[in-house]
Amino acid sequence: MQADNINQVSSDEAGIKKVQFLDWGLIDYKEAWDKQEALFDETVRIKTLNRDNKDGIQQPTNDYLIFCEHPHVYTLGKSGKPEHLLLDEQGLEDKHATYYKINRGGDITYHGPGQIVGYPILDLDHFFTDIHKYLRFLEEAIILTLKEYGITAGRTEGQTGVWLDGDDPWAARKICAMGVRCSRWVTMHGFAFNVNADLNYFGNIVPCGIQDKAVTSLNKELGRDIDINETKEILKSKLCQLFEMNLV
C-alpha cells in the first residue's frame, strides 16, 4: 500500500472517523502479526515525527480495522504462564497447531478457523485516550452483536472479555477473549470471537489463565452453524456505532 493512499484515511467534517477495513481471510498467525506490526510501527513513526516537528506541520495517521481467521494456534501474552499450554512440541504437531509468545497483554488463548479475530490498529488520539474505555467498547460491540442473535452476554468482574452467565460460577462461559497492546495511544492485537470455533482446542490450555471457567461459541449456544460473514457485518456495524466511525 502506498503512503500517499494511506494518509488519506482520517476524519470527515462531521467528526465521524474514517477507518480502513481489511479482511485478511484465513491467514497464518505470524504473517498477520508481521503485517500488524508494520501498520502499527508506521503509525507510531508518524506520531513521533509529528511530536518532534518544530515547524508545526503534522502528517495524518491512519486507523485500521482488520478481521481474519487463523489456522490452529496458541498465543501467550506478556503476563501469561507457559505452563498454561498443556501440550509439548509433539502434542502441538499432532494437533496441527503452532505456538507463539507475543507482545499483547493477557495470558494464553487459542485462535482457529471459525473465529472472528479482530485487530483494530487505531490512533486513539482520534477517538479517546482511555485504554479501559477502549476495551469496554470492544466488549460492548460483541455484547450487542450477540443480542442480535437473542443471546444475553456481559462481563465478569476482574476479567476482560465477553461472557455468558458471567455471574454464575457454575454456568459462566467465555465467548470472546481479548488482549491488546497500546503504545503512544496506538493499539494492536484485539479480540477473538468464537462463532463456529472448534472448542476442543481449548482443552489443551488453561484459557486466559482461568482454570474454573468454560468457553463457548455462537454455534454451540444456538445449536446450528452460523454464517460468519453475516456475523462480521453485524459486528462491524456495532463497532462503527460505538466508535463513531465509518469503514472505507
Rank of each mutant, 00 (worst) to 15 (best):
Y29V: 01
R155Q: 07
G91P: 09
I228C: 04
R224C: 11
K133W: 13
D41A: 13
A171S: 11
Q36A: 07
K54C: 09
V206A: 14
N246P: 02
K238R: 10
L138W: 06
Q159Y: 13
S10T: 14
K95F: 10
L22K: 08
C176T: 01
T75H: 06
H111N: 05
K78C: 12
G118T: 10
N53W: 01
P207Q: 01
V117Q: 05
D63V: 04
F137M: 08
D28W: 04
I6Q: 09
E89G: 08
F21A: 04
A214V: 06
T152I: 12
Y110I: 02
D4A: 08
E13V: 15
G150H: 10
W33M: 08
L235F: 14
F40Y: 14
L146R: 03
V117C: 08
V73K: 00
W185Y: 06
V186D: 00
E148H: 12
D41E: 14
A141F: 09
V248C: 15
H84I: 09
L65G: 01
R51F: 11
V9F: 15
E139N: 08
M188S: 09
I102K: 04
E230W: 11
L124M: 08
V180M: 14
D227Q: 02
E83R: 08
Y201C: 08
L138A: 02
K147S: 12
A192L: 04
D168I: 01
L92Q: 12
K95Y: 11
D212Y: 08
P113R: 15
E13K: 15
Q211K: 15
E139S: 01
Q159H: 15
I102A: 04
T160P: 05
R173L: 01
G105W: 07
I102L: 03
G118W: 06
L138C: 07
S79P: 01
A141C: 07
K220L: 12
R181H: 14
L164S: 02
M178R: 02
N50M: 05
K232W: 03
K213P: 04
K54Q: 11
G114W: 10
L49V: 01
L86Q: 14
Y74F: 06
L86H: 07
I226F: 05
T48V: 13
K81L: 09
D198G: 11
A197G: 03
F202I: 02
G158R: 07
A192H: 00
N5G: 11
L92R: 13
A38L: 13
F202L: 05
L86Y: 12
N194E: 02
D107A: 07
M1D: 09
N204Q: 10
D55E: 10
G209W: 06
E233M: 10
K236E: 04
H132E: 14
S11P: 05
G190W: 01
K17M: 06
L199T: 01
V206Q: 12
N62E: 15
R224F: 15
E139I: 00
R136N: 08
G77V: 02
P169S: 00
